[in-house]
């Protein structure tokens, strides 16, 4: 790998709400994505993982209350890196859908119901690659074939309402990959689908990745999926990155107590692969972002909580081994057992 294509540094997102205190959705998240690499961002809902993705693409609602800070350096082909968070609208639009694309969770609602499948794929190509309508339409058929849809020539003329959820997600992938992006952000792309269809979509994504060589940021709360697709895991908890490690390392020997519980019922990499486990539940709730606990935000739910140590100051992300970062004051003690 020749350096990361995306380096996120100290990304923070705050939503202002009328009258009340600001809501810090993401607090100083940092991670890298290498070319062709798959990084899974894992966490419970409201951990900030989707907000992170939306912030990278500049898709957060543009209301006055949203403040995004930090840096996200993205390297396009043969160019110097650009900071996604500082780009003007027009430049950002040129990147969205062309260099970085996104696939969303719910294929049933993510496609425009009144436009044909063909139009929805073609418009990306016409916008970014300057194709004519005819060329784009031909390319759309090709893309539909590549995402494994039978009768692509027919499907281009269909409306989303005529396709099943799995087929629609394939269409979403076709749209996302039409311009051969360097990075694909997949936000829970299989959560809304049947289990069998989930497996097909995952296989499709992996196949296309091998073929086209794009990097993937895979957002999910399904550990089984992580084990199948990821090279690296980034665990997020209440708006912070709490652990960041290569997939085998993370699943086999998680250091942060939160990740330990998260992966507990699935102790080994292979077991995870075999059982495709969902996240186990952890006692307590993810803290309300407006009233996060002092010190380590996980301490009220942590089995290794030590008064005076864990609730004093917020631990920083430290490097445990090469390529393995953890946010926990007591990780060494805990690892020793």
């Amino acid at each position: 790998m020749s350096g990361p294509i995306l380096s996120v540094r100290k990304l923070a997102v705050t939503f202002a709400q009328g009258g009340g205190p600001d809501i810090p959705a993401v607090e100083g998240a940092s991670f890298d994505v290498g070319a062709g690499e798959t990084v899974a961002i894992v966490g419970e809902s409201s951990s900030g993982k989707s907000v992170t993705a939306m912030a990278l693409l500049g898709l957060l609602p543009a209301g006055a209350g949203t403040v995004v800070s930090g840096q996200a350096l993205f390297r396009r082909d043969g160019e110097n890196a650009v900071d996604l968070l500082a780009l003007p609208d027009r430049a950002m639009r040129a990147i969205r859908g062309r260099d970085i694309s996104m696939v969303f969770q719910d294929p049933m609602t993510s496609l425009n119901p009144v436009l044909t499948i063909g139009e929805q794929i073609a418009e990306v190509l016409m916008t970014h690659d300057g194709l004519t309508r005819r060329q784009a339409q031909a390319m759309a058929i090709e893309m539909l074939a590549r995402v494994g849809l039978r009768d692509p020539g027919q499907i281009v003329a269909h409306y989303p309402g005529q396709l099943s959820g799995g087929m629609r997600q394939r269409v979403m992938i076709a749209i996302a990959l039409a311009c051969r992006p360097r990075l694909l952000i997949a936000d829970e792309p299989t959560t809304a689908l049947d289990v069998t269809v989930q497996a097909q979509i995952l296989a499709l994504l992996r196949g296309l990745q091998a073929e086209m060589g794009m990097a993937i940021i895979f957002i999910t709360h399904n550990i089984g999926v992580v084990a199948q697709v990821a090279d690296r895991i980034v665990v997020m908890y209440s708006g912070q990155v709490v652990e960041n490690a290569p997939v085998r390392d993370a699943l086999d020997s998680p250091l942060m107590p939160y990740s330990r519980v998260l992966f507990r019922t699935v102790p080994t990499y292979d077991a995870v692969l075999a059982r495709r486990q969902r996240l186990p539940t952890i006692p307590g709730h993810v803290p309300d972002p407006r009233h996060r606990p002092q010190g380590c935000t996980f301490h009220p739910r942590c089995a290794h909580f030590r008064p005076g140590v864990c609730d004093g100051f917020r631990p920083s992300l430290e490097s445990a081994r090469s390529g393995h970062e953890v946010r926990c004051v007591r990780w060494e003690e805990i690892a020793r057992g």
């Binding site: 969303f104 993510s110 436009l115 418009e123 970014h128």
Partner: peptide
């Protein structure tokens, strides 16, 4: 959601407004 998709595709605001929203 499909309006978010349209934005994620990098379409121009004009195209989103007329083709996706108003339609």
């Amino acid at each position: 959601d499909y309006i978010r998709t349209a934005r994620a595709k990098g379409l121009s605001p004009r195209r989103i407004r007329y083709r996706h929203v108003l339609r």
